[in-house]
């Protein structure tokens, strides 16, 4: 770990200023990922801007939406009555991530900003275009069992590790950020990006922008949603494949559907074509199987992750069955 300066920001503006004034400054919230990365010399910010004192922990109902402060803790959101009642999918996804201890430290904003857990990204003795652009992708021809099957590039096949973000992208959330030029709103689906030629960039935030909150519009999915995560052990492991499924069922017919996958891409992977295939159809296993097939179109496997092409659709079907109450 290198030596760094530490500053405690008392306002969002001060935090943004600190970022603007130092190209190597990083925000620290819960520190559950950044500190690990610093210990391993994967990231070496020369300044840490601590935003724990900012008043951004509130979860509140506004007109037609719920707003969650960027500093709300993962465990706080997961256990929040309003969230459990209106967006149980988000609560489930949060509880599927990390461990109780980490959820008690990790913030909502930090969860969005966490970096891939690709082995090659973490080991400075191995090549990684994300950590060191131009050094090559270690995973491409290496151990890629955990890696992406959608939206990969020749530079990077890493996946985004979050569970929370899979639920948020399914729930049409919007992220509020502030920066030197003022505030702006980013649809959740556009927050994270695919690796393309710049795998070092995880998302579309500007260097000196700060996440203030995330908003989830009211919806009709609370009765029929499910987050299913398949992993190598029962808890405290990253997803092989995860699926956030939300349905609005009237009678036996699906009126609306939301579907997203984790563990398969460099960003939370929304499945809009599959959603379209669900709408207007009866909520049956047959319908779900057809949607799952559509969802997997364009998937491309590498040496060790071909199983995701089979596991993926199975988990979509199982998540939808659970959402529809068929299990």
């Amino acid at each position: 770990m290198i030596q760094f300066q530490y500053e405690r920001a008392s306002t969002a503006k001060a935090a943004v200023n600190a970022l603007t004034n130092n190209a190597n400054a990083k925000i620290i919230a819960g520190g559950t990922n950044l500190v690990d990365l610093m210990k391993r010399n994967v990231m070496a910010p020369t300044k840490l801007v601590d935003i724990n004192a900012l008043p951004l922990r509130e979860i509140r109902q506004q007109d037609g939406k719920i707003s969650i402060g960027a500093m709300a803790l993962n465990s706080q959101v997961a256990d929040d009555k309003l969230i459990i009642e209106k967006h149980p999918l988000l609560s489930q996804a949060l509880n599927a991530g990390a461990s109780a201890q980490i959820r008690n430290m990790a913030s909502v904003g930090g969860n969005m900003m966490q970096r891939t857990r690709c082995h090659y990204f973490y080991d400075t003795a191995l090549p990684c275009n994300k950590r060191e652009p131009g050094s090559g992708c270690g995973a491409m021809e290496g151990m890629n069992r955990m890696h992406a099957v959608f939206g990969t590039s020749e530079k990077c096949i890493a996946v985004h590790p979050s569970d929370m973000c899979i639920a948020l992208v399914a729930l049409d959330a919007t992220v509020l950020v502030t920066g030197p030029k003022g505030d702006r709103r980013i649809p959740f689906e556009e927050l994270h990006r695919l690796p393309g030629n710049q795998p070092e960039k995880d998302n579309n935030l500007q260097k000196d922008e700060l996440i203030i909150s995330v908003e989830i519009p009211d919806n009709s999915f609370s009765k029929n949603s499910h987050y299913m995560k398949i992993r190598d052990r029962a808890s405290y492991a990253f997803a092989l494949v995860s699926v956030a499924a939300a349905l609005n069922i009237e009678g036996k017919v699906i009126k609306e559907a939301r579907l997203a996958m984790g563990g398969v891409a460099h960003k939370p992977w929304r499945l809009k074509e599959a959603e379209k295939a669900l709408v207007g159809k009866p909520a049956t296993e047959e319908t779900f199987r057809q949607a799952a097939e559509i969802a997997m179109q364009g998937a491309k496997a590498y040496k060790h992750n071909a199983f995701k092409l089979k596991l993926g659709p199975n988990v979509i079907v199982e998540a939808l069955k659970n959402a529809a109450g068929l299990v």
């Binding site: 052990r233 029962a234 808890s235 405290y236």
Partner: peptide, 11 residues
């Protein structure tokens, strides 16, 4: 201990 999976309580 994140990547090398020893059983956790839930296992």
């Amino acid at each position: 201990l994140g990547d090398y999976h020893v059983p956790v309580h839930a296992d």
